[in-house]
Amino acid sequence: MHKRLTLAQLHIGQLARIQQVLDGPFKEKLLEMGCVPGVLIKPLFKAPLGDPIAYNLEEYTLSIRKSEARQIIVKPLDILFKDEQ
């Protein structure tokens, strides 16, 4: 068994699939914005002070703070697709 990885732990450009959004005050908002299990997500760039981080969520760019990214459990894909070049 590998340990559970959160979105906050991905490095820039690492494609992953969302597995679960943990219960908490941000859950509903994250789901509404499209962070639902099964969706592909990829960190694009960080804000100058390292936080928040912008993610490519399928068709658009979503910015989330690290504290919120820790609520999202992801599974990195072994094969890295060259998404959006």
Binding site: P25, F26, K29, L30, Y60, L62, S63, E68
Partner: peptide, 12 residues
């Protein structure tokens, strides 16, 4: 007490 969040779309 309620934590704030920053879940924001960066539009094109």
């Amino acid at each position: 007490d309620i934590p704030s969040y920053f879940i924001v779309e960066l539009p094109i």
